[in-house]
Design a protein around this nucleic acid. Structure first.
Lengths: 195, 195
DNA sequence: AAATATAAGATACGGCCGTATCTAATTTGA
DNA sequence: TCAAATTAGATACGGCCGTATCTTATATTT
């Protein structure tokens, strides 16, 4: 007879659920993970889950926050804009390696229903705007005289993020070759443009 | 007594279903359109629909093909690369105006599960690769001596498409100001880069 | 015209979603 | 310490998915 009287509450319960979520994510992948399945695995019911997370995407994001080993990005300052971009992309590549491509793809597809592309990457990183990293890089480059100005339209400042998302969705990973090509063929020409 | 003996078959049936699909799409939008709902509206059953289209996305794409008034893009040749891009983006903007943003967003999100971003736009246009339009533009520009070379990495040639998709997903539409900014701030600097 | 092949339509299934409602365990605070 | 407030957990609902199975109307073939 399996006795089970005590009810978990609050953080203990949340922990159990997120553990189960992480578990299921490894076992079944994002697409095949279901709220009901997680509830069952955590020995609770979906009612409890829906009280805390509105949908699968949020639940998985929460689990990622707990187990994904995510580290906040830091603003690179290598002395050249190219070096900064390389460093930034390196940080992002490291982050992405922690996620299976399928998870990211599923997450993005789900979030796409509610969010704009530009916001997607941020949400993978606890709301840290990628822009807040790129802008200081541009400030430094402008201060060094490497580029003509530090102020660029939003569409341009967010370009690194756009390229990145596209790359990750197209390929599974973010190869070094891809990083270099994006930087040398696209980003640097854009920021070095003489206008 | 509503008599209904005759069974529709083949094209007649397909037409009825796609008409119902188009109808439902207007009434409920992509997200709230359901296969069962379309089946009911077309006075048939979902079994019949699943025999022809594997999922909602394909069904809606078929309806778009029939009622979306899509026209194939033509290769611009205005005499300048900038003019060509403007023309191309104009064509795309016209196309996108036929789709509600919500439809495109939903479609993209659904297709994202199975396709890479670069392929997405093509599928909206009967498989015409955007690349097949951009490349001739680059050939012309190179022949004119306007740009240094006609051969660019895939990542660069597909950049217009990436920018476009991102724009459409972020905003509802593709404003003229956005088009100009993408062209002048990003695309032209990239293709004019001296390397 | 009759036999055969094809495909429409009806029905039912298990699975999951997201919500609502109820109960009972646990915490709280008076 | 005991009543009140909170919240976990159970259950049930309607809706939709995607598949399978069966029937029966229509088309094809001979």
């Amino acid at each position: 007879m399996t006795e089970k009287k005590t009810r978990r509450r609050g953080q203990a319960l949340v922990d159990a659920i997120l553990t189960a979520t992480w578990d299921q994510l490894q076992q079944k992948g994002y697409q095949n993970l279901t709220i009901e399945g997680v509830a069952k695995a955590a020995e609770t019911t979906k009612t409890v889950l829906y009280r805390r997370w509105p949908d699968k995407a949020h639940l998985v994001i929460a689990a990622l926050g707990k187990f994904g080993n995510l580290t906040p990005y830091t603003v690179p300052d290598t002395g050249t804009l190219r070096g900064d971009f390389l460093n930034l992309f390196g940080q992002l590549a490291a982050f992405l390696e922690r996620l299976k491509g399928e998870t990211l793809r599923g997450l993005l597809a789900d979030r796409l229903q509610n969010l704009e592309v530009g916001k997607l990457l941020n949400h993978a990183n606890q709301g840290n705007e990628l822009k807040e990293i790129v802008q200081p890089m541009l400030d430094h480059a402008a201060a060094r005289g490497e580029i003509a100005k530090a102020e660029w339209p939003d569409r341009v400042v967010t370009l690194p993020g756009i390229l990145l998302i596209n790359e990750v969705l197209s390929q599974q990973d973010l190869s070094e070759a891809a990083q270099i090509e994006m930087i040398d063929d696209i980003l640097l020409p854009v920021f070095h443009a003489d206008n």
